[in-house]
Design a protein around this nucleic acid. Sequence first.
DNA 1: TCGCAAATAGGAATTATTCCTATTATGAGA
DNA 2: TCTCATAATAGGAATAATTCCTATTTGCGA
Lengths: 151, 151
Amino acid sequence: MTSAQVGQRVAGFIAACRRQGVKATRQRMEILRELAATGEHPDAETVFSRVRRRLPSISLDTVYRTLHMLQEKGVIARVPSMQDRARFDANMDRHHHFVCTVCGRISDFYSAALDSFAPPPAVRALGAVDSVHIELRGRCRKCRSELKKNK
Amino acid sequence: MTSAQVGQRVAGFIAACRRQGVKATRQRMEILRELAATGEHPDAETVFSRVRRRLPSISLDTVYRTLHMLQEKGVIARVPSMQDRARFDANMDRHHHFVCTVCGRISDFYSAALDSFAPPPAVRALGAVDSVHIELRGRCRKCRSELKKNK
DNA sequence: TCGCAAATAGGAATTATTCCTATTATGAGA
DNA sequence: TCTCATAATAGGAATAATTCCTATTTGCGA
Ligand SMILES: [Mn+2]
Ligand SMILES: [Mn+2]
Ligand SMILES: [Zn+2]
Ligand SMILES: [Zn+2]
């Protein structure tokens, strides 16, 4: 995401706050800006340490509270994870993830084929499907080359 | 899974323990038995409280330790989750999950179409894919009917 | 600008998980 | 079957992630 796009995203959120009678605080802006600027799907602690560079007095609790609020409002998403910490994603376009089982890195990818996937009939018995998410697991480029080096 | 199938599963694990020089303890058997008997993808605490009925003195730590060990050996799998607790799955057949966004319930389903999913070319740039996991999100039957009741 | 409700900072509390270590019990060998 | 070495366990302490509490601050409507 370009810096201009991030700016737009934040501006849009400010407008949404006004509309919903929610305060557009500096903390909220910076947290969203930080998340929108990266494709890394960071955890709360990572967002905290980065936002802190611009808002040195921000608290970790505010980061957690804000990330949850943004998720509730549908502005960002929480990514399911095998690890024991929550990870977040500002990319709300329909997309999927490649997860490196070595370093934990999560990368986005898109698939027209999956976007038009129709759930099998057996699924209808389970419930109403709202969305489809693919997780590909493997070893990322970086981890593969490091693996090669060490052998 | 039928009770007989669960028994076979546990028997197979006992044999594997012998082969690998790992002790086949009562605790390990009961933990695996409990997980194999349910399709709920329970968390450690849930497994603990159930196994406890048969082994009242088992410790929570043993449950955590054993679940990890079983996962390391490839006997069970850890399921990625949005929640802040790890969930486990004894079903090692190739399958996918329907996750209820209201109650968190995870149900298995099978799909030949999805099993043959070929990652788009862009993924090759990210790394080497080892496995494909589909997660359908929606509202399960139960949550849907309760939703209807309350409106 | 003023006043107030909403939001924050900072620390305490809670929850999930892991670590530590004295004790127990599996299983190889006699 | 009995014995013994040691892998594994129980239970409690420690740690890590997240949430709660509350005095103070701040956004923003009037
Ligand atoms: Mn993403
Ligand atoms: Mn499953
Ligand atoms: Zn990697
Ligand atoms: Zn449900």
